[in-house]
Nucleic acid binder design. Structure first.
Lengths: 340, 340
DNA sequence: GGATTTCGCTCGTCTCTAAGG
DNA sequence: GCCTTAGAGACGAGCGAAATC
């Protein structure tokens, strides 16, 4: 009766296996994998080759358990939030350059933000990036005391965490100014009140309108299906007698709903109405090719990770706000106004 | 000079802290959290309350390290694959009922399937679900020897893993039959050759057309931006003299590109052309309201998790294929054919 | 004596055996 | 037989200190 099973196919290789394979100590293998100084280049090469041969992959759980910090960044995001499509890859990249691994934790109608965050705490992540989190500020403030936090794409206030979002005021302001420069005077704005940070984008609209001495024309909509909300806004405009000559939307999805519905009713974009979106997600899709405000996923991700890394290193404690660029990208959904 | 720091705010609480807080043994706390037998209801309540009070969350790394299996399921998915929007929440749910936690690992143009899989191996997941993975079969076959695998939304062959996908042949067949029942005779199909499993959906079209004694009318398209591909297909149809009276698309995104482009050119849907999608993702969006083939995220997720759980338990080793339901959902993008 | 390698303890939890109330 | 505790050895890697060439 064997008191110890031979390393079966089932068991994963460990550092000890690698070490035994070439006759060095386990610790030395550890040093090599940590890229710590004091391992001769020759030995290191042998070690990595042996690891390759027996298919060794470091056990992340063991690392996380033993290390002072886990070197994990937790990221919560909502599965149907379209902007995370570009944000997540950028976060992976940025985290890697800062020496962190990413642990994703998805939220949805079936999984709350709190559950997602608990998982991150369970993994003992050194810090967390919360994308458009719906957690109340009081809750966040409590969590921020023991876990470095960055709120991404949601400008929260009164919480000691980093906040990273695109400069909505500026982006929308620029869009309205551009439309005015084309000769538009009846410029409307579609405000989606259930979207985070909608108020800042609205602010940009109002600032520009005031400065241009034009009239406010705001359509306020709400609803889960954001494209449908855009469609609903289109109906609203069409039932009001005269249409504006240009409409700025709080995001690309609303713009799509709007354009689709107009076209279905025979209203041409941009011939009859110019439309501008925000986000530059679906807008850049060649068949849509909407004029929109571009927010840069890479810039957002890098700012978020850099701030979080500073917090983890203890260099920051207080609230800090970063507004990343939001610039108009002119494409084919805008033109000079129609002749009435 | 204190030889031991008092539990500072920085350190996370452990089972020992919980135990000390109410004066029981550390082992008992462990039993309670594992819901193991032998803990009185009264004591268990006290333990959980104490855990709540001092904010204890089990250290997942320690659990994963010590346990025989980690009870993790790794899931790889591509961030711009729209169907994962519904699939991921469903997988979380299904995994939970089977007693597993989920570890997400995203792929994108910046992060390969192999990197994503390595992370999963690093976490020592008991098994993995690969959603529309692009890894070559030979690679998968090698991995499947040491890690239970399920391929979701991609029908691979020759690999000893579970395969779960919707019954594309049936779904498209049903769509064509329905169109024929409305009186359509010129029924075209848009085949997206770069999509996984496109061949099965095409097969359904061909089977139905043959059975109905109609003529094959296939538009083959390729390209990254799948909605643009749809738009491109629309251009193709419009340049061919006469339009078909109905078009079945390989997926919803293509359908959107098609409909959008037709409408822009003044062609009415469904007045001039009926359109059917596949997936029932964006199609269900109220402002689109496309007729489409519904594939059920919940059904897919449950089948995938159930099969994987069986593999992890050692109840299965060989390849196995599950085809989940694919049923036509009639909405407003289809009607009787136009009068020529 | 500096470069290279090894020792020995530790992280938080699981799991097992033995024994106490 | 119920509940509870004591004690100890894992799991796999990190890291400070000591040993070796």
């Amino acid at each position: 009766m064997p008191n110890k099973q031979p390393p079966s196919d089932q068991r994963h290789a460990t550092m000890a296996d690698v070490a035994a394979h070439i006759g060095v100590s386990r610790q030395l293998v550890g040093l090599a994998f940590r890229h710590a100084p004091g391992v001769s280049a020759e030995t290191a090469a042998k070690i990595f080759q042996a690891a390759e041969e027996i298919g060794y992959q470091p056990n992340l759980a063991a690392q996380a358990l033993r290390r002072e910090g886990t070197k994990y960044i937790g990221v919560t995001y909502h599965t149907s939030h379209s902007s995370s499509e570009e944000l997540l890859p950028a976060i992976y990249k940025a985290a890697e350059t800062h020496g962190f691994k990413v642990i994703l934790s998805a939220t949805s109608s079936l999984r709350s933000d709190q559950e997602a965050l608990n998982e991150i705490i369970g993994h003992r992540c050194d810090g967390a990036i919360l994308i458009s989190s719906t957690l109340p500020n009081s809750r966040l403030q409590k969590i921020a005391k023991s876990l470095p936090l960055v709120s991404l794409s949601r400008r929260i206030e009164g919480v000691n965490c980093g906040v990273v979002a695109s400069h909505g005021e500026h982006g929308v302001y620029e869009a309205v100014q551009y439309l005015a420069s084309l000769g538009h005077k009846a410029i409307a704005y579609v405000d989606t009140v259930e979207m985070f940070d909608h108020e800042y984008r609205l602010q940009g609209y109002q600032d520009a309108i005031r400065e241009l001495n034009l009239e406010n024309w705001i359509a306020t909509i709400s609803g889960d299906y954001i494209e449908s909300a855009g469609a609903q806004a289109a109906e609203q405009f069409m039932s009001q007698g005269e249409l504006p000559t240009a409409i700025v939307c709080a995001n690309d999805q609303v713009a799509l709903g709007l354009v689709y519905t107009f076209q279905k009713s025979g209203i041409k974009v941009p011939g009859d109405v110019s439309i501008v979106g925000y986000d530059d997600t679906i807008a850049r899709n060649p068949f849509l090719d909407f004029t929109t405000v571009h927010q840069d996923a890479k810039e957002l991700a890098e700012a978020a990770v850099a701030d979080l890394a500073d917090r983890i290193a203890g260099k920051k404690k207080l609230a800090e706000l970063y507004l990343t660029s939001a610039n108009l990208v002119v494409r084919s959904s805008t033109s000079v106004p129609r002749l009435n």
